Amino acid sequence: LGAFHNSAERFDPPKCYPKTREAIIAKIKAWVEERVENGERLVLWMYGPAGAGKSAIAQSIAELCEALLAASFFFSRPAEGRSDSSRLIATIIWQLIMTIPEMRDTVLSSLERDPTILSRTQATQMKVLLVDPLNRIPKETLRQHPCLVIIDGLDCLPTESQNDVLKLLSTFLPQLNTPLYFFVASRPCSNIRNALDLFRPLIDTLPLEDDYQSIEDIRHFFTSSFEEMRNEHPHLPRSWPQMVDIEYLVRKSSGHFIYASTVIRYVTQGRHGHENRLQTFLPVQSHNNSVTPFTMLDALYLSIFQSLRECAVEKVLQVLCALICLEEYHGLTC
């Protein structure tokens, strides 16, 4: 249940700040609404580097297109049950039963005849519990129900599982008499790109690029966030921060919202000291002449770690060591 877009486990999930990412959201909404009218392409793959805001966009689409949303699954590496694909098909089927109740009796009958289906391969689950029940429903009936499925964070899975999920989609989506449409978000891992070639005629792609609009969105995010801080804390000067400081932060973000949101989250911690917290980032300089979001994030987190009290250093190191060990254990690399 934690994989749903509106689950309690994901309470207050990342989503797009008001009046940001409007161009990219408009493109996705147009694809969602257009797919309902014609069944040419069944998958929209949105890809971008870590920190580009993919999960926030996926969450916003789930909320904005809720009337068309049939199911969703938000993967997450640290979350139990959402860091592998073992529950993906069963979770999607359960949601489909809720949004398309006409398939309920067929699914239950299949489970009664063979209660071990949920322990079978995902391909078997997909065929018996999803494709067959949907194909029994008249097309006219299905067209009256939501048809959008969102899968976010596919790159959080081990490489083999990423390939398995995409192979399932490429195999079974064309078998549906009335299509479901999948919006998939991930990093541009080479194996995901290669796996998607399996059903190239059925896919649209949408790259998240470091473009003018993303920079403008981040500038708006910083400006509005600092305005909110000033309104909430009247002791802050109305001229704080100076525009030159905001522009400095915008440049350092390099079009990546993870940097901007990390700065704002850090500055807003506590009731006082906002000016000092912001000042922590303004002198940060990268020794690398090539401006990349990863270089800037390294500098940002270095400044945060350097500000830790001595008593907290050991605990932070223990947490980092645990995360590294988990990463290596699960083989979560692209």
Score class of each variant (00 low, 15 high):
residue 199 F to I: 09
residue 98 M to V: 09
residue 318 Q to P: 03
residue 35 R to A: 12
residue 122 Q to S: 09
residue 99 T to N: 13
residue 83 S to P: 00
residue 288 N to R: 15
residue 290 S to F: 07
residue 146 P to T: 11
residue 101 P to Q: 15
residue 174 P to W: 12
residue 16 C to A: 15
residue 170 S to N: 10
residue 208 L to P: 00
residue 21 R to Y: 02
residue 27 K to Y: 04
residue 251 R to M: 03
residue 259 Y to N: 01
residue 265 R to Q: 15
residue 79 A to L: 14
residue 14 P to I: 10
residue 244 V to T: 13
residue 256 H to I: 03
residue 155 D to Y: 08
residue 115 P to C: 05
residue 41 R to D: 05
residue 284 V to L: 08
residue 155 D to C: 04
residue 76 S to F: 04
residue 58 A to Q: 04
residue 57 I to E: 06
residue 102 E to P: 00
residue 328 E to Y: 02
residue 221 F to R: 02
residue 139 K to H: 07
residue 111 L to S: 00
residue 214 S to V: 02
residue 20 T to A: 07
residue 322 A to Q: 13
residue 113 R to V: 00
residue 244 V to P: 00
residue 179 P to K: 15
residue 140 E to M: 07
residue 213 Q to V: 01
residue 121 T to N: 06
residue 178 T to Q: 10
residue 61 I to D: 07
residue 82 R to H: 08
residue 93 I to N: 11
residue 104 R to D: 14
residue 43 V to T: 09
residue 93 I to A: 14
residue 308 L to Y: 10
residue 89 I to A: 08
residue 198 L to P: 02
residue 184 V to R: 08
residue 267 V to G: 07
residue 192 I to R: 04
residue 201 P to D: 15
residue 133 P to E: 05
residue 195 A to T: 04
residue 227 E to F: 03
residue 2 G to T: 09
residue 112 E to C: 00
residue 178 T to A: 08
residue 107 V to L: 06
residue 311 C to S: 13
residue 101 P to I: 12
